[in-house]
């Protein structure tokens, strides 16, 4: 084994080890503490878990590539809400009224287009002004949320289309529609980051931006494409979720950015860019959802979830640092 391989393996594999621990813990603890008779690792329960992971998970894939690229996007929750409103509201527009269910694909496309456009706007601002992505998307998070409110005031936007609900609730090969979307997105993004020139260049930019620039890689367009992808995925997440629920409040999606970033960091993506794995992010998403479900399974208050996840995030950061520490002789700065 080459030097570094073991610790790399530990880090890559850590999230899966954590998931296994969660499964064991909640299965055993569930025997004693659970209010329900069902075992925690019941198949239906696990399938439901995958489905419930989808909204955060789909966005997390986008966040991973943005963070690998060396940026961050705090506006995903707001993009998610706007896309949801566009999706539900556009189906009620008179011009689509005559189309019946034919309006569905148009509504989907509209929502996805809006999400992509908002992501593109973020990317364009980061590219052209040189303002840090943290600030740009922090502003956009407020600004896009403002647009959400401006659309329909503080009222919820609702439209339930039963064809859509049926589609969203359908199961194919045992997996829910939302789960399929999550898996497809994961596969597609994995393929993008590992097999395409764009993906490899995105890694290079996050890893050593100056080297990438000197090698003639155009940083701006790559960043912009990644922001468009995360915008698209935030919209896709909304499309998948709201096709079923049919009603969106203007506050929906708030704090999503935090959940998403938590999942991505749990999966081991470096904040400084250049390193991160799509599969590990998938693990991070599952780990969070397991924790939520597991805690409620053993009868803990849902409130405790926030507490536990926050502390776990910090613990992971701490462990990561301990693994990377070089020893006593290290320079103390």
């Amino acid at each position: 084994m080459q030097p570094g391989t073991l610790s790399t393996f530990l880090k890559r594999g850590a999230i899966w080890g954590f998931i296994v621990l969660e499964l064991i813990f909640f299965s055993i603890a569930g025997e004693f503490m659970s209010l329900s008779d069902n075992a925690f690792m019941d198949l239906d329960n696990m399938l439901l878990l995958l489905k419930q992971s989808a909204p955060i998970g789909i966005i997390a894939m986008g966040m991973t590539i943005v963070m690998i690229n060396g940026n961050i996007d705090l506006s995903v929750g707001a993009i998610y809400a706007i896309s949801a409103i566009i999706l539900l509201d556009s189906m009620t527009w008179p011009i689509f009224g005559a189309l019946g269910d034919g309006a569905i694909p148009i509504a989907w496309l509209l929502a996805l287009a809006v999400g992509t456009a908002l992501g593109a706007l973020n990317g364009l601002i980061v590219w052209k002004t040189g303002v840090d992505a943290f600030i740009v998307t922090l502003g956009a998070m407020l600004g896009y949320r403002g647009l959400v409110f401006m659309y329909n005031g503080e009222q919820p936007t609702s439209h339930l289309n039963w064809t859509l609900v049926d589609f969203a609730e359908a199961q194919f090969l045992g997996l829910h529609t939302a789960t399929w979307f999550l898996l497809l997105v994961t596969a597609a993004i994995w393929f993008l980051m590992n097999k395409t020139v764009h993906g490899r260049n995105a890694y290079a930019i996050g890893d050593n931006r100056e080297a990438a620039v000197n090698a003639g890689i155009r940083v701006g367009p790559h960043m912009m494409i990644n922001f468009m992808i995360i915008g698209f995925l935030a919209a896709l997440s909304a499309v998948v979720f709201y096709s079923e629920s049919g009603s969106v409040n203007p506050n929906d999606g708030e704090l999503y950015e935090l959940w998403v970033i938590t999942a991505v960091v749990l999966g081991g993506t470096k904040l400084t860019g250049g390193a991160g794995s799509i599969i590990s992010t998938f693990g991070g998403v599952l780990a969070i959802q397991l924790l939520r479900k597991g805690l409620s399974h053993i009868g803990a208050d849902t409130e405790t979830v926030n507490l536990v996840i926050g502390l776990i995030l910090i613990a992971v950061l701490f462990l990561d640092r301990q693994l990377n520490i070089k020893g006593k002789e290290e320079l103390k700065v």
């Binding site: 490899r200 260049n201 890893d207 050593n208 090698a215």
Partner: peptide
């Protein structure tokens, strides 16, 4: 001016 996370080959042909 290397990207540490990438392979030797990717670094040699960085940008190309």
């Amino acid at each position: 001016s290397l990207a540490e996370e990438l392979s030797v080959a990717e670094n040699i042909y960085l940008g190309e």
